[in-house]
Each structure stands twice: as structure tokens, then as C-alpha cells.
């Protein structure tokens, strides 16, 4: 079956590639465009490690059709740091030991980024809700919640 062209912005850069018609965005990002930040953990929507932003809204790349992202802006955890400068979420995750194996981290950061973009000063409950679709099997959620709350309190957290 013929491949289809897809053009999108990835972390601010215009990119183009060819995809299988029913290819999930996750495959396109990882295998087509070489952005390995979003991971495969389930392909079912249950783990959240593939969380990306599509036009600013969190979506699960494993369940998103790549062709549906034509012309849209996709952001991943690879684009979170500003060059060598880490985003407050990243420094807070480091400071609070909010990662152990690190496999859930890109998805967690992206979910947290989506939260802070809409709600710069979330309550603890709102943080819990924001990462309720992201599974971490190692770290325990507490350090992650604390890190997100700490990042929200830091200057520049809303920086997209």
C-alpha cells in the first residue's frame, strides 16, 4: 500500500516524512523522524509514556493516526529544554528524584507541561489528575507530584 506524505512541525521545526496509512504517530515520531522521547509502553492508551502535545493538547501518540497530524504542531519532551537550559519541570524532576528507570519520564514531563500551560498554579489534586493517565512502575508517584508542584512554584514554569 502506498505511503502517505505527512508534514508537521515537531518541537518548532518543520518536518516531513512518509507514513503507512494507519500508522500511529508514535511510530512516525520514533522510526520516521528519529525523536525517541515518546516511548512505547502499551499501544493501548493505558500507560502514558507516549504522551505528546498536539497543538498544545496532550494526546497519546500510540493511539493517534499520523495522517491526522498533518499540518499540526507536535511537541515532545525532546523540545522541553531550551538549548542547554533546562525547563523548570526538568530541574524539579532532578531535584526531587522523580525518575528511577526514566522510562515514564518523558510522558510525565509532557503531561505536566500540558497542565502548567493551562493551569500555572495547580493544586495537588489537579496534579494527580493531570498525571492520572501516566503510569510509573518504579519511582512512586509522590516524588513526581512534589516535583510538579515545585516546578509550578518556580519562575518560568509556564514557558511553553
Amino acid at each position: 500500500m502506498a505511503k502517505l506524505p505527512v508534514q508537521l512541525r515537531l518541537n518548532g521545526a518543520d518536518r516531513a516524512t512518509f507514513v503507512d496509512p494507519a500508522e500511529p504517530l508514535l511510530t512516525t515520531l520514533r522510526r520516521g523522524l528519529g525523536d525517541f522521547a515518546p516511548k512505547y509502553g502499551c499501544g493501548q492508551g493505558t500507560c502514558g509514556v507516549c504522551t505528546v502535545l498536539v497543538d498544545g493538547e496532550p494526546q497519546l501518540a500510540c493511539l493517534t493516526l499520523a495522517v491526522a497530524c498533518d499540518g499540526r504542531h507536535v511537541e515532545t519532551a525532546s523540545g522541553l529544554a531550551d538549548g542547554p537550559d533546562m525547563h523548570p519541570l526538568q530541574t524539579a524532576f532532578m531535584a526531587h528524584f522523580a525518575a528511577q528507570c526514566g522510562f515514564c519520564t518523558p510522558g510525565m514531563l509532557t503531561a505536566a507541561r500540558a497542565l502548567l500551560a493551562h493551569n500555572p498554579h495547580p493544586t495537588r489534586e489537579e496534579v494527580v489528575e493531570a498525571i492520572s493517565g501516566n503510569i510509573c512502575r518504579c519511582t512512586g508517584y509522590e516524588p513526581i507530584i512534589l516535583a510538579i508542584l515545585a516546578a509550578a512554584a518556580a519562575p518560568g514554569a509556564r514557558r511553553a
Partner: peptide, 25 residues
């Protein structure tokens, strides 16, 4: 003590086994 793999984790640069590109995979 800061974990030495932490910067890789939070910048998503940590390479897990599947995070390697191959032509003709």
C-alpha cells in the same frame, strides 16, 4: 547524591534499547 543518569532521563536523551535508529529495520 544526584543520580548520574538523571540528566539523561529528564531531557529524554537516555537511550533505551528501542531508541536506536536503523535503516531497513
Amino acid at each position: 547524591v544526584q543520580r548520574q543518569d538523571m540528566p539523561g532521563h529528564v531531557t529524554a536523551r537516555t537511550r533505551f534499547f528501542d531508541d536506536h535508529a536503523f535503516d531497513g529495520l
